[in-house]
Design a protein around this nucleic acid. Sequence first.
DNA 1: ATGAAAGCGCTAACAC
DNA 2: GTGTTAGCGCTTTCAT
Lengths: 337, 337
Amino acid sequence: MNKLTIKDIAKKFNVSISTVSKALNDSYEISDATKEKIQKYAKENNYKPNFNALSLKNRSTKTIGIILPTMLNYFFAQVFNGIEKTALERGYKVITCISNESYDKELEIIEMLSNGSIDGFILSMSKETEINANFSHFQETIENGIPIVMFDRVASAIECDKIITDDFNGALNTVEHLYKSGHRKIGFVSTLSNLHIGQQRFLGYKKGIETVGLPFNEEYVINIIDTDYKKYEEILSPFLKKNKLDSIITTGESAAVASMKAALKLGYQIPKDMSVIAFSNGILARHSSPKMTTISQHGELMGETAATILIDRLENKLTDFTKKVIKTDLVIRDSSK
Amino acid sequence: MNKLTIKDIAKKFNVSISTVSKALNDSYEISDATKEKIQKYAKENNYKPNFNALSLKNRSTKTIGIILPTMLNYFFAQVFNGIEKTALERGYKVITCISNESYDKELEIIEMLSNGSIDGFILSMSKETEINANFSHFQETIENGIPIVMFDRVASAIECDKIITDDFNGALNTVEHLYKSGHRKIGFVSTLSNLHIGQQRFLGYKKGIETVGLPFNEEYVINIIDTDYKKYEEILSPFLKKNKLDSIITTGESAAVASMKAALKLGYQIPKDMSVIAFSNGILARHSSPKMTTISQHGELMGETAATILIDRLENKLTDFTKKVIKTDLVIRDSSK
DNA sequence: ATGAAAGCGCTAACAC
DNA sequence: GTGTTAGCGCTTTCAT
């Protein structure tokens, strides 16, 4: 019942614990005979070195702390997946906590884990943190020798490794794509205008409009904030109606679904009368009717990249801080022409 | 940079480490004066007792191992959420690993964490494990003194705490509901017929059909297995056409979405000509057109319950093994009449 | 080739 | 009221 320790093995063979330790670690100091019998016994009895003893000794836990704003969002779930996969491959485990978009919770989590529980953090900060630009907890963590890798929602004021989506060009390229396929009244629906990524997407949209030579019309842009997705449709319906748009880009899937529903109710056909393209990672896009054309964000790759960078840093394979930009892909489905 | 330890504090005040330890733990043995100055200093310098040292000493890590088949599924993400929330409230953290429906991976994860990394497991086994009925790794873990709480996909052969959905009655009640609202040709679409939960849902359906006094017709049941969701629609279209069903129950959201699409293409109106009801947790149901009536599964509650039970067990508040059944709720939306 | 001992950071039983 | 010591499980340096 109680775990087998090095001490038990030592007693069993009437040797010292250091002999056992060395034998198990295949030290040249130990005779083949002893090594063999000890290793055999250890294997048969399913010996495993105690994790906490090792961590204490090595001052390294081989575990990564992940802080996510939520798990109930396909993007973050995908990022988690990428981190977990890469971490396991490289012999690390992950402790995952959810901030629920709350600064206090985020702080609490960081404090809770900054006691030798983890070697480093991978995180995307909470909305509250970003909006209040309250970054001192990150700074302190780093100063205490715990590296942080930020992804998606990153703090430019903090010096650390960062992985971001190419939101700007994702939006810009989409505008160009829509223009080339004949659209001239391109709208922009944002539910993220209070976040940096939302602003980047907007700026990319605006730049795109300029690039193709269309006039920028503020009326074609709507920011929906602090609103439940259930209200999106009723907010978007008049917006679409008034502006007679022939296409819209949305910063997320829910808004795109609501836009399509509103448009269909207004008698539009999609994509004939209106194209809808959303920043997305997935699930709704593939199941909506019509299936949604998306600016795809590669959450899993983002997670893999974040884990690789953090582990490389922990293993001293990195010097300067990196800022990796993950390109988006325009995935053409049936909601755009 | 390097973490403050009890030793550093002892040196600072020229006292012994045990004095510091006692002072920090507010022992009655220590004078108020020393306690105060030491506690103050500790607080100011952000002292935190080393996690690994504590775990080693107490033989308890206050961390829970979670093994999920996937995170890219709203149900499991919800369960995770419930576990993480409850765990944190009770002072536990969670290490989360993904089995990807693979037995080998599941085994590997269990072995990796069974070295004092965690105090107990909460898991839902992989499909492969369930299909091959390969449960010895669970048995051994429990025998080694590491408690397991299983949820959703549970092994009846293993004696441990279990939380399951009331799949049987969820299906049965839905059949009765459909019958009462005038449906007579009720179909059943399963994508989980190789899992126990899928069988329970089917048995509930069958029992329901008997209960309301309809003839059980095998033709009205279709099992889709090892097939990508993209193919669902083309598989379901002839099935719906041939049987002229007036309603179907599906074991999951994707199949329900595909059914609706197939039905609409066949010229059916939903719910006028056909009602669709799915076992579900969410996301697609609320965004589909029409919005989906669901047999809702309460993933978050399941997670909270699992965490509560595991922690109670770890803290010796439990004796006999419990088997908690979580009721489903029929959430009426627009895909059924 | 093997063992003794120190130390990772902490607690607690037992001195003083 | 404060200090000494042993021990949690392990590695590693330094004897032997």
